[in-house]
Amino acid sequence: MNHSKAKIIRIVTGWISGALFGSGMIISGMVDPNKVIAFLDIFGEWDPSLAFVMGGALIVFTPIYHFMIKKRKKAINGDLFKWTSNTTVDGTLISGAVIFGVGWGVAGLCPGPAIASIGGGSNIILAFTLSMIVGMVGANQYLAGRLPLPIVGYRKNICAITAGATSDSATPSTNQ
């Protein structure tokens, strides 16, 4: 497939997936921080409905991945798959997940619902999104050894970073 066609598919797929993703966020109720907190409040008045969001996502994604995507060498437009061969569960992964968990538990917002809510014009969402971007830039600087953190100081082991700083759940340095 030629490059311009691959690029068109990449962009059109990106837009359609984004529209589906945002719609899913709003329809499912993930955009409501009160609902998210009620879902996390398992020792209080637990509202389990958001468990069905992840459940619903996994019953659709998992079979498509294992029966259609996994056996392919490349995506339909010819691009390589952007997941990683890295299977090491390390301190960076877990500490990042824990820090994210604290933020999620404090406000009930995570990146997806925030972006899907931007169009609502809420200054709360705007403040969250801008702080989140600042946090991301901070993390990139920390991973590159340029930003000291309280207690831990500068990052010493910088080698794993270029992989760590660019992709979600998968590191792009090694395809497939």
């Binding site: 990042g96 968990g101 604290v102 933020g103 917002l109 989140m132 946090g135 991301m136």
Partner: peptide, 8 residues
């Protein structure tokens, strides 16, 4: 919370 979510 946004700072923590972005960083984490």
């Amino acid at each position: 919370s946004g700072l923590l979510v972005g960083f984490g």
